[in-house]
Design a protein around this nucleic acid. Structure first.
Lengths: 214, 214
DNA sequence: GGTATTGTTAACTACCTAGTTAGTACATGG
DNA sequence: CCATGTACTAACTAGGTAGTTAACAATACC
């Protein structure tokens, strides 16, 4: 009985606004990923709505399941892509110089979405033993710790501080305001995206680094 | 005959652990709050299930709406209570001495639920201008900043560091590992609840404080 | 002892949401 | 131009979810 609800045929006289290409697999995939990044970053896995992602991507829900298997898989894909994007630049930066912490902050500016993804990861998927892109991330962080240890041997960094704890602390100092915007506001009266705040924080971090390394 | 489902009376010889009173308004309220604290802390507002909270509290969903108006109100009540609980102890601690950061960590131990509540607050309700218990929290933090400034005047703390940024940073150093357990594990190989990790972090924070204050 | 109030319950509803079905349009290559 | 696989779509479904209803039971109060 194949005459149930007969999907409409694209009428020749229809005036579609910007239907440039009717088929665009890679484009669709990318648009879904981008839309999902926004939605997941803003609302997390539980809070995100699959329909909202589809709509934002200018496609429909089915495509999302066509390219990625499930909501959860989509989240993982988003996180994986975002991590892979950041990995190369992470390797380039100076991790032991006097401006390292302020630099790290500069790099993180405009990447609040990234920090939020990591928070959702920690909160919503915290129980998992394995974490997305585990090896890639671990390598990158281990390399950072090694750099610190070498700098300690050279005498560029104080050698009584544990390298791993130091790395963790530098991440903490930079990421915290983005992770806890409400606390930042309560303490400083400014939101972490405020340029004034960023400048003040940068200045503070430079002083702090100098004091640490002395 | 009103013997429909006959709510059992507390039989004298019965060995119920704590089914003391059939009616226990305050107890029920508290049990709901406690259950909600666990559930919200673990899963956030979107992730938490009202039925799960009710069941955990040993009551039913209606009571939750009877005492608190909605899921969101319940979350706010939980947060408010938790904040009020912590407020007095926050005032007591030494905020400027050499052991202050390590102390702060000790206080936060076993309060991961608290940190997670604050994270959910920041993530899920971040857009709101007003935050739960705004005045209470702000007062407490302002007081802390004032203490720091006074210590700077006395010369107990370096006076070139901005007091507010310093407070923010001390919070960051202590809260970060709990907030980003996955990053903590990737960097140090240990989860933040691991006693070994806590001890190592404590030692590091003490060294760091000494270096900062020098 | 009667009655108003407050606490408690199971069952219900109206809506939402992730995931699916089943079909259509486009492309490719023979 | 026809056959076959790929991209795409609207409508559907099954199960979940916050919030409600309505009846009833314990207590308080007179």
């Amino acid at each position: 009985m194949p005459e149930t609800t007969a999907p409409k045929k694209p009428d020749a006289g229809a005036e579609e606004p910007d239907r440039s290409r009717l088929r665009d697999p890679e484009g669709t995939r990318k648009r879904i990923l981008a839309a999902a990044l926004q939605e997941f970053s803003a609302k997390g896995i539980d809070g995100a709505r699959v329909d909202a992602i589809a709509e934002r991507a200018g496609t429909n829900k089915r495509m999302l399941y066509y390219y990625f298997g499930s909501k959860d898989d989509l989240f993982r894909a988003v996180l994986r892509q975002r991590l892979a994007e950041r990995a190369p630049t992470a390797r380039e930066r100076d991790r032991t110089g006097p401006g390292r912490i302020a630099d790290l902050q500069d790099r993180l500016e405009g990447q609040m979405d990234y920090v939020r993804l990591l928070m959702w990861e920690g909160l919503e998927r915290g129980r998992r033993r394995r974490v997305e892109q585990e090896l890639l991330r671990q390598d990158s962080l281990t390399e950072w710790c090694d750099d610190v240890r070498e700098a300690q041997r050279r005498g560029d960094l104080p050698d009584d501080l544990d390298a791993e704890q130091l790395v963790l602390s530098e991440l903490a100092l930079v990421m915290f305001p983005f992770a806890f915007p409400q606390i930042t506001r309560l303490v400083t009266g400014k939101v972490p995206t405020d340029p004034t705040f960023k400048a003040e924080r940068r200045a503070f971090l430079e002083l702090l680094t100098a004091r640490l390394d002395s």
